[in-house]
């Protein structure tokens, strides 16, 4: 069975390279920004690259549970690395915005308060902070059942991230709406009524 083969292979493939790849990608994109490979407006391009990667990784983290329930493929050992990498890119996205784009604390605060799409993005980031802080074995042990409850904050965080993206675009480009649709679908499969129906089928 292909599922068993994948699950057996995951025993041999560790999760730690995900961190190295994430940092390497971020570094490479920054280098591209410096050398002009991101086009003549690299600040906006880098902001967008980091933001999209944060969203992609958050979505990847949301895929893992339904993937296991629906197909039996178990990638759960990679979830922490995926989640922390998402947080890393969200931090990089925020840093580019604050330090390269806006560049003044007063204006950063003003934008967060006055611009709803910024407010939402910031809220998503704030929700991710406790998750990143508690993503270690000691916290899991110390918090017990509360850890699982706390980490459900991922759901509103990803949803806000998706809305943040849709809210800032002009017109109807496909990409942000595809992200949001995927996020909503991945959250929907977690609802009880849906799970119940599937169990009977």
């Amino acid at each position: 069975m292909i599922v068993d083969r994948i699950n057996r292979a995951t025993r041999r493939v560790p999760a730690w390279p995900i961190y190295i790849v994430a940092v390497a990608i971020a570094g490479f994109q920054f280098y591209q920004g410096l050398t002009g490979a991101l086009g003549p407006e690299p600040i906006n391009a880098l902001e967008r690259e980091y933001g999209e990667l944060a969203l992609k990784l958050l979505i990847a983290g949301l895929v893992i549970t339904p993937l296991r329930t629906f197909t039996g493929v178990n990638l759960i050992k990679y979830r922490r690395a995926i989640g922390l990498s998402a947080f890393f890119f969200a931090t990089a996205h925020l840093a580019v915005w604050a330090f390269l784009d806006v560049r003044a604390w007063s204006r950063v605060i003003e934008e967060i308060i006055k611009r709803p799409y910024v407010t939402i993005g910031m809220a998503a980031f704030v929700l991710l902070i406790p998750l990143a802080v508690t993503s270690n074995k000691a916290s899991i042990r110390a918090m017990g059942a509360n850890w699982r409850k706390l980490h459900k904050l991922t759901y509103p965080a990803v949803l806000l991230g998706g809305i943040h993206y849709v809210w800032l675009v002009k017109g109807w480009p496909a990409e942000p709406f595809i992200y949001l649709a995927v996020i909503i679908a991945l959250l929907a499969v977690r609802f009880k009524p849906f799970r119940f129906q599937r169990a009977r089928a």
């Binding site: 920054f30 920004g33 410096l34 002009g36 003549p40 407006e41 690299p42 600040i43 906006n44 880098l46 390269l100 784009d101």
Partner: peptide
């Protein structure tokens, strides 16, 4: 932001 000024 004037285009073409680079990352900084």
């Amino acid at each position: 932001r004037k285009i073409g000024g680079g990352l900084f």
